[in-house]
């Protein structure tokens, strides 16, 4: 496997996931995969080989994008099992395009179910705290606003670019909001009624993988008994054995104008226990942490065969 390509792709996934959220990262990846198959020029056998290569690549990125892994494995399985039924590369491409679109439709259905379920979580007079960029959270708020619900948002300010994206979204949707630096949140604990946080996935250690800063924020809110909501469709669950490794950390050299140099540590993600979340908003219902754990175990058990087959 080409390690340079793998590292670049991992960096790209991380970058897209941070800026646009996991859902959009998956969407972009699926679209890209479809376009890549359509613009491929080569023989059927070459397509087969290249397909395996891209599958290996996606399987080994860090972070692993669960939804994409399921998609590509299922797609490959379907492609292989029906390979002899097709006669030309054009038919192969048509098959792949159609299959990806079908999967996308199923994904959209799951997402619509989640949005419908989420609407019970927002009531008039709510003051909702946002921290990270989650397009699922954005869609929940957009839908609630379109339903005429009266609520306001407080943004816990973090990286300037991320806060700017949240500000732009709320401004476009005409949702009332205020911004407060993350370290001053304690002053607003009495006015915040709930917290909405995005999540990359939940792993087999029953940890939520979220944006950097999520863990301290969630701990603070937990102490103040403010309910924490995490929306997550079931296709985002990581259904393989997670490693107990440290989070990806980069060291950035910084320099003051006075010339003093220092090292700044930047972490890619935070991990926190599922127990710290009050409710998970899923396409299967609004679940407390215990119910969510049961759901996870159920899915994990169901995917035992898949894990063995694909050596994940």
């Amino acid at each position: 496997m080409d390690n340079t390509l793998l590292n670049t792709l991992s960096g790209l996934f991380l970058d897209i996931e941070r800026t646009f959220g996991t859902r959009d990262c998956c969407f972009m990846a699926m679209e890209s995969l479809k376009k890549s198959f359509l613009s491929f020029s080569g023989t059927r056998e070459e397509l087969r080989q290249e397909f395996q290569k891209v599958m290996e690549l996606i399987k080994n990125t860090s972070p692993r994008i669960a939804l994409l892994m399921f998609l590509i494995f299922d797609l490959f399985q379907a492609f292989e099992s029906t390979f002899s039924h097709r006669k030309s590369i054009t038919e192969d491409k048509e098959f792949l395009e159609k299959y990806i679109e079908e999967i996308d439709q199923k994904r959209r259905k799951r997402f619509d179910d989640l949005i419908a379920i989420s609407q019970v979580t927002i009531v008039d007079g709510d003051t909702i705290l946002l921290h990270d960029i989650s397009h699922t959270v954005f869609d929940i708020l957009r839908h609630a606003k379109s339903q005429g619900k009266k609520f306001q948002v407080i943004i816990a300010q973090q990286d300037e670019s991320k806060t700017a994206i949240i500000v732009r979204f709320l401004n476009t949707e005409k949702i009332s909001f205020q911004v407060v630096p993350e370290y001053l949140l304690a002053h607003l604990k009495d006015s915040i009624t709930k917290v909405f946080l995005g999540a990359l996935t939940v792993n087999s250690l029953l940890e939520v993988i979220g944006d950097p800063g999520s863990e301290s924020l969630i701990s603070q809110m937990h102490l103040s008994h403010i309910p924490i909501y995490v929306p997550l469709t079931t296709d985002k669950l990581s259904l393989w054995q997670a490693e107990k490794k440290h989070h990806t950390c980069k060291t950035q050299k910084q320099k003051l104008i006075s010339g003093i140099e220092y090292e700044k540590l930047v972490f890619s993600h935070d991990r926190y226990p599922v127990d710290l979340v009050t409710f998970f908003i899923t396409n299967k219902g609004l679940l407390n942490s215990q119910e969510f754990k049961s759901l996870y175990h159920e899915y994990y058990a169901k995917n035992q065969e898949w894990r063995l087959k694909n050596a994940v």
Partner: peptide, 26 residues
């Protein structure tokens, strides 16, 4: 790179990213 699916995939993903970045900004 029309014969290289991994590279095509990465190029298309990057193009998507650039497009989304452009659309998400003022």
């Amino acid at each position: 790179i029309q014969k290289n699916i991994p590279k095509l995939f990465m190029s298309n993903l990057l193009i998507q990213k650039i497009k989304e970045e452009f659309l998400s900004e003022y």
